[in-house]
Design a protein around this nucleic acid. Structure first.
Length: 260
DNA sequence: GCCATTGCAGCTAG
DNA sequence: ACTAGCTGCAATGG
């Protein structure tokens, strides 16, 4: 439950230093962006041991997220490799999307797993949840231990390189439990992630609210709490200098009697 | 009938 | 030359 999250956060976040927070926010320096690749083993271990214990709160008007490193690098490497073997991505018609009357290929690969019988509708395409795989169950349970939240569905997005991306959107509230946070686990390449307030978008923007930009690290967990999803859109913009894949898992709770 | 949608073309700025 | 960031699109479904 929420209580668990708050307790975990209180115990750890108080001791978090600015240096620990620095790498997550986009205002980080270049060298810190590259840390996962270049750092010495000893330093990295110390860093991860410290950081994996701590939550970082990310807040803005109507936005409430928690960020932490859930898996140390070696475990995250292992999970990434296993997912590459286990996950079967959609093919055929399910890789197409229709926007404003035109049909496009989805600029990433998608799959979904969940409890038996669940479906998730994404932009007119109904996704049948496949059964959980061992690795996905393991990650799901790790997320539950870290957050106290339970999930019955995971959407898997694989971005093969920096050309793959996801446009600005909110997660469909109709079939989601609005009070259950969405838990986003990142494995593989570090990618930028952007939140934009709904009233600061488009031609007739009512207000000027700065976007919130994050970097999602290998092995990280981003909890998107209510009511973030009603006020803020999010996207994974293209980053053409990124050459390696990223797998993103978004764990959700879907209401059994979702509307159609 | 109203409103939100989602990816890309086309553009600008650096 | 190239990338990032921003705007318009005017169809369709709920």
């Amino acid at each position: 439950m929420d209580t668990f999250v708050s307790q975990t956060r209180k115990r750890n976040i108080d001791g978090t230093t600015d240096e620990q927070r620095e790498p997550v926010l986009k205002k980080c320096k270049e060298e810190e962006c590259n840390q996962g690749i270049v750092k010495e083993d000893v330093k990295e271990d110390a860093y991860l041991t410290e950081f994996s214990q701590s939550w970082q709160k990310i807040e803005a008007e109507g936005l409430d997220c928690d960020y932490a490193l859930l898996f140390p690098k070696e475990e995250a490497d292992c999970l990434y490799t296993q997912l590459e073997e286990e996950v079967v991505y959609l093919t055929g018609d399910k890789t197409k999307i229709q926007v404003f009357g035109k049909v496009y290929n989805v600029p990433r690969k998608q799959a979904s797993c969940g409890d038996a019988g669940l479906t998730y509708t994404y932009s007119g395409v109904s996704l049948q949840a496949s059964p959980w795989t061992p690795t996905l169950e393991y990650i799901r349970d790790a997320v539950t231990k870290a957050t106290g939240q339970t999930f019955n569905f995971v959407l898997i997005n694989r971005y093969k390189d920096g050309h793959d991306h996801m446009g600005e959107h909110r997660d469909d509230e109709r079939e989601l439990d609005p009070l259950c946070p969405i838990a986003s686990v990142s494995l593989g390449a570090v990618r930028d992630f952007v939140f934009r307030h709904r009233e600061s978008r488009g031609k007739q923007r009512r207000r000027q609210i700065n976007p919130v930009k994050l970097e999602l690290a290998h092995g990280s967990l981003l909890l998107i709490n209510s009511p973030t999803n009603t006020h803020w859109y999010h996207s994974l913009p293209a980053r053409k200098r990124v050459l390696t894949p990223r797998i993103n898992l978004t764990f959700r709770r879907i209401l059994q009697h979702g509307k159609k």
